[in-house]
Amino acid sequence: MITYLFLFFALLALGTAILVVTNKSTVNSALALVFHMLSIAGLYLLLRAQFLAVVQVLVYAGAIVVLFLFVIMLLNLEKEENLFAEFSFKHAAAFFAGIAVLAQLLYALGSWTGVLPEFADQMIAIGTVEAIGDELFTTYLLPFEVTAILLTAAVVGALMIAQRKLKSRDQ
């Protein structure tokens, strides 16, 4: 059963990833990206990392891709330009970076044994929402609270920069 689920999610992830790159319309690409993120979340679940799966859906599929969509719609991008119309140093660098990633992947695949690894109970216990919540509100309480202030400061800063007109006496 798990093998079939894995195959389903893996193929979905692969297919949607190809769609993200090949699709002509940027909106469709972004939507394909949502499905890609969701299938990755499914893979995380199969690996028993429930917290990671939830965060993947909430943050990536939820917040980030929606932000992408907003930007695409606001900027009103029509057709993407043909990337390979002219050759530049950037493309060459991207090509070699791609080769490097591919080599890494193939190297990792070399150690494939054909069965999913066994999960130790300890490993599973780390990845639960309870365990992470527990750590977050005891050991890592201070960083957690500091993050709150950091985000407040960032929001105020962003508002200040974004506000177009300053209300002041001498205007």
Binding site: P143, L150, A153, M160, L166, K167, R169, D170, Q171
Partner: peptide, 29 residues
């Protein structure tokens, strides 16, 4: 002076900076 209406944000951000620096000199993690 022309930005007097924004002094609230100005001091708020300075306070954020001071907090950040206080933590910088003390943090061991």
């Amino acid at each position: 002076d022309p930005y007097k209406s924004r002094l609230g944000e100005y001091y708020m951000l300075i306070a954020g900076m001071i907090l950040g620096m206080f933590l910088m000199v003390g943090s061991t993690n």
